[in-house]
Structures are given as structure tokens and as C-alpha cells.
């Protein structure tokens, strides 16, 4: 594979046909390839998320991350956009699904696309990856320590969020879940409940919980970073996508 990639801002059609900006990266060789939608975390479409998009491109995928805060803050810095989105109540689930659908369509429209698309999200994006996979025809989903897929948010949350238990029967694709044993949101008990629910629905899934790791163990610029879990996790992600998207 030619190692050159190109990364740039693009417009995609999001929920309701809204034009929103997204960050897109692609290898520059002429091989057909599947796509990955990367859902950014609550701090927005920031440097770390863009690095993740480029990592998928370097690994041979079309990869795109829609800016979920574009409507509240078009053109703003990621941290300002995240603050504006938080102040206005966060991203509604319905809009998230529409934005991921638009990003997936954008990937499928690439001339060399195979048509297979997966989704991955970290933290709040982990829950949103599962949410998207429950409503869209996708081929793979990766949930990295997403809270409130099961479990109940505390009363009084100003940001409207609820668990996805009633939506799990609609999960459209295999799910890889990567979690930390010391995380409380999601806790090991909650990921065990999710494991059980998916099994009862006959949904293909693979979970790994890392001892000694808490939340955000993939984030290299935070104290929560756990290199052993992160290195193993990346290996599992690409092995999983190899089976689900490249087979």
C-alpha cells in the first residue's frame, strides 16, 4: 500500500439534509476499501479525534468524523463549539443518528468504496456508536467505554440522555466493546449487563475489559492513558474490522 494519505474538511449532508462540516481522511492509492465513521467525544472534533481519523486512513480505510456541533457553532474552535453545544443541551439522539447516516453515505459515495461501513466512538461517542448501529444499516460498531448504553443517568441531567436497552434488539451489526475494569461509567456490572442483553437478543459481540484501566485509557495525553490496554485495544479494533468490513 502507498502510505500517502490526504486529510481535509468536507461538507456532508447530516440530519434533515443539513450541511455540516466533517473531517475526512483517505489513502491515496487506488485500492477499494471500506469506511469508518469516527464519532467525536464531548470535547468536540478536536486534535485527538482528527488523529484518530488519520489513523484509520493510514490503516487503509476511508474515515470521516462529522462535526456534531456544527449547527451550534459553525467554524468555531472545537472547545468553543463543545461549550456552546453543552450550554444548549447537547446533541439529540435523533440528530446524531442522522449525522452518522450522512457520514456513512458520504463514505459509500467514494469511487473506491466497497460499501461496507463501520462506526467507532469513545466516551460519549461510545454510546452514540451503539445508538447509530441500532438505527442504521452498518457492518461493524466499536464502543470504547461509552456510558449509559445500559444503566440510568442520575436525575436532573440538563443534557437529555437515556440508556439504549430498548433499542438493542435493532442492533444491525457485530459490536466490539472495550472497557476498563476500574471505570464506573460504564461499570463492569453495566458492561456485564450489556453483554447479557446482547446475548439474549442473539447479537454478535466481543467485549474486552482491561484490568488496571479506567475510563479513557486510549487517550495518550491524559493521566488515564494505559499503554498496554491501548495497544491491545487498537489491535483488537483492527482485527475486528478486518473480519467485519474486509471479509
Amino acid at each position: 500500500m502507498d502510505e500517502a494519505i490526504r486529510a481535509e474538511a468536507v461538507d456532508v449532508a447530516g440530519h434533515g439534509g443539513d450541511r455540516i462540516q466533517a473531517y475526512f481522511a483517505q489513502p491515496l492509492d487506488s485500492t477499494s476499501r471500506p469506511g469508518m465513521v469516527v464519532i467525536h467525544h464531548m470535547p468536540g472534533l478536536d486534535r485527538q479525534t482528527k488523529e484518530t481519523v488519520r489513523r484509520f486512513a493510514a490503516q487503509g480505510y476511508f474515515a470521516v468524523s462529522p462535526n456534531l456541533y456544527w449547527r451550534e457553532a459553525p467554524g468555531a474552535d472545537p472547545d468553543d463549539a463543545a461549550a456552546a453545544a453543552r450550554a444548549s443541551g447537547g446533541v439529540p439522539d435523533e440528530r446524531l443518528v442522522g449525522d452518522v447516516a450522512g457520514a456513512a453515505d458520504f463514505l459509500r459515495s467514494q469511487p473506491l468504496a466497497t460499501g461496507k461501513v463501520g462506526v467507532i466512538g469513545y466516551c460519549s461517542g461510545g454510546r452514540q456508536a451503539v445508538l447509530a448501529a441500532c438505527h442504521l444499516p452498518l457492518q461493524a460498531a466499536v464502543d470504547c467505554y461509552g456510558a449509559f448504553v445500559v444503566g440510568q443517568p442520575p436525575e436532573g441531567f440538563p443534557i437529555a440522555i437515556h440508556n439504549l436497552i430498548d433499542q438493542l434488539p435493532s442492533l444491525s451489526c457485530p459490536l466490539l466493546g472495550l472497557f476498563g475494569a476500574e471505570d464506573q461509567h460504564p461499570s463492569p456490572a453495566e458492561t456485564a449487563e450489556l453483554d447479557s442483553l446482547l446475548a439474549s437478543h442473539g447479537k454478535e459481540h466481543e467485549f474486552k475489559t482491561y484490568p488496571g484501566a479506567g475510563h479513557a485509557f486510549f487517550a495518550p495525553d491524559r493521566p488515564s492513558y494505559r499503554p498496554e490496554a491501548a495497544v491491545d485495544g487498537w489491535g483488537r479494533i483492527f482485527a475486528f474490522l478486518g473480519r467485519t468490513l474486509e471479509g
Partner: peptide, 27 residues
């Protein structure tokens, strides 16, 4: 999670004037 501080969690305050746009913020 903070945007800048090298910590897992911080107490964050945004003072905003939404009428002036998202960049009108003291963080």
C-alpha cells in the same frame, strides 16, 4: 474532561454571551 488541562477531569466554568457567538467565552 478538560480541553487543555492535562487531567482526566477538571471543574470547568464557561462564561458565555451566546448572542455574540461560540467564541464569546471565558473558560
Amino acid at each position: 474532561h478538560p480541553a487543555h488541562a492535562p487531567d482526566d477531569h477538571t471543574l470547568n466554568v464557561d462564561l458565555l454571551n451566546p448572542d455574540l457567538g461560540p467564541a464569546a467565552r471565558v473558560a
